[in-house]
Structures are given as structure tokens and as C-alpha cells.
């Protein structure tokens, strides 16, 4: 069996020095991907469905206190801990380096959710409803997930798919910046940059070479495709 290969390895760079924590990406993701609306009770129970969250950490004490923001989405690990534990291949890896989630296959063991060190997988504990006419907003490109299945950030795979089809229709590769997930597209400060890590000239590939780069929980050896750039200073000059 031949391994499939791909000219793409999608990745993202999150520049924490640019990130202001405003939350635009969170709503963009929710709007793009038919992410369920969760009420107060649901979030109180720890069942928020957001695929992308901004973590806020307090460091130090008043008056020398700092707040640090960390947008966390699926890291699309090259060695994703969620993949091998799924008994039904609902969590799988595609040749573009995306960590996919096939809702139809999912039986809801939630093993992947446990084994994801980044805790970015959300489970449909509830059977979510969109009161009419809010359901008009639901995007036809993306499944509305039924109860009992796991879901997570896909790097807006529907957009990638569209861009790849457009490109292959024109007999070329997807150009840098041609496709962006909703979060990166909307980020006012351009803290999120998406692109093809396999192309050394792409913007992400250039940013990844920054000395400020790091990856979340790097010691676990998951090799995420999401790179972070450390906040530059944030201390007194």
C-alpha cells in the first residue's frame, strides 16, 4: 500500500505579540462551522462547544500583574494522540497534514477527547437545536453534528477543499494566502497566519523560522502544526 503524499502541509502561526485577545476569531469560528450555541448551563457544566478558545492567564500580582492570552485551537499534530486511540478511524490524518474528524464514523467513545493534551476536542453532550429562524444561518458546507459525536477545529477544511479544487481546475497549486480559515481571516491584529508549511516561501514557513517560535506542550512529542510566536517582551523596556 503506497502512502499518499501531498504538496501541502497546512499549518498556522499564532503571534502572541500581536494577539490582543479580542475574541473575533472565536465568533468567526462559531459562525463558519455551525458550532452550536451553548447556554449558560451548558458552559457551567464544562460543555462549551467552541472549537477555538482564547485562554487567559494571570501572571504575577497587583500591581505587577500581567494577563497573557493564548488562542488554542486544534493543533493538527503530526503525531496526534487522538488518532491512534479512535477505534473507528473517526479521527484520522489526511495527507495534507490535517487531523480530520469524520462525524459519521464517530461512536462517541470520547477516548480522543481524553487523549488530546490540548483539550480542544468538544463532545456533543447535548442535542443542539437552533430556534427558527436562527437555523437559516447554518452553513450548507458543514454538517450539523448530532449528539454523541466528537467535533473540533478542522482548519476550515471546507475552505481548503474549495481552494484546492479551484487551483487544480487551473492546474496549479493553492497560492499562499489564497485560503484562510475563518479565524485567521478575521483576526484584526493579524495574529493568526495560515498557510502551507511545506512551501518554504509561504508566509507561515517564514514566520515559523522566527526565533520567537515555540509549540504548545512540545515535550509531549505531538509535533503540532500550530506554531506560536512568543510575546516580545511584555515587560518594561
Amino acid at each position: 500500500m503506497e502512502k499518499q503524499t501531498s504538496p501541502y502541509r497546512w499549518g498556522m502561526v499564532v503571534d502572541l505579540d500581536r494577539c490582543t485577545g479580542c475574541g473575533a476569531c472565536v465568533v468567526a469560528c462559531q459562525a463558519e462551522n455551525n458550532v452550536a450555541i451553548c447556554g449558560k448551563k451548558e458552559i457551567a457544566e464544562g460543555r462549551n462547544m467552541h472549537w477555538l478558545r482564547i485562554e487567559r492567564f494571570w501572571v504575577g500580582e497587583y500591581p505587577n500583574v500581567r494577563a497573557r492570552f493564548l488562542p488554542v485551537l486544534c493543533q493538527h499534530c503530526r503525531d496526534a494522540p487522538c488518532e491512534p486511540v479512535c477505534p473507528v478511524y473517526a479521527s484520522y490524518h489526511n495527507p495534507d497534514g490535517l487531523n480530520g474528524q469524520v462525524y459519521n464514523r464517530c461512536v462517541g467513545t470520547r477516548y480522543c477527547g481524553n487523549n488530546c493534551p490540548y483539550a480542544v476536542r468538544v463532545f456533543n453532550f447535548y442535542s443542539h437545536q437552533w430556534p427558527k429562524p436562527l437555523d437559516n444561518q447554518l452553513s450548507p458546507d458543514i454538517t450539523v453534528r448530532p449528539r454523541g459525536v466528537m467535533e473540533k477545529c478542522t482548519f476550515c477544511v471546507q475552505r481548503i477543499r474549495r481552494a484546492k479544487e479551484d487551483a487544480s481546475g487551473e492546474g496549479r497549486l493553492v497560492r499562499d494566502g489564497e485560503v484562510q480559515p475563518a479565524c485567521a481571516q478575521t483576526c484584526p491584529a493579524e495574529a493568526l497566519v495560515f498557510g502551507n508549511l511545506a512551501d518554504p516561501r509561504s508566509r507561515v514557513a517564514r514566520l515559523v523560522r522566527s526565533p520567537r517560535r515555540f509549540r504548545l506542550l512540545e515535550h509531549l512529542g505531538t509535533h503540532p502544526s500550530v506554531y506560536y510566536l512568543k510575546g516580545g517582551g511584555r515587560e518594561h523596556v
Binding site: 451548558e42 457544566e45 464544562g46 460543555r47 462549551n48 462517541g108 470520547r110 477527547g113 481524553n114 483539550a119 476536542r121 468538544v122 463532545f123 456533543n124 453532550f125 447535548y126 442535542s127 449528539r147 454523541g148
Partner: peptide, 15 residues
């Protein structure tokens, strides 16, 4: 017949 919200499970305690 309803959904799993009647359990005490959440994220991160999925088991």
C-alpha cells in the same frame, strides 16, 4: 433516548 447531558461528564472529564 435523550442525550448524554444527563451524565456528569464534561470536558475535560470525558470518562
Amino acid at each position: 433516548s435523550t442525550d448524554m447531558s444527563c451524565t456528569g461528564l464534561d470536558r475535560p472529564v470525558m470518562w
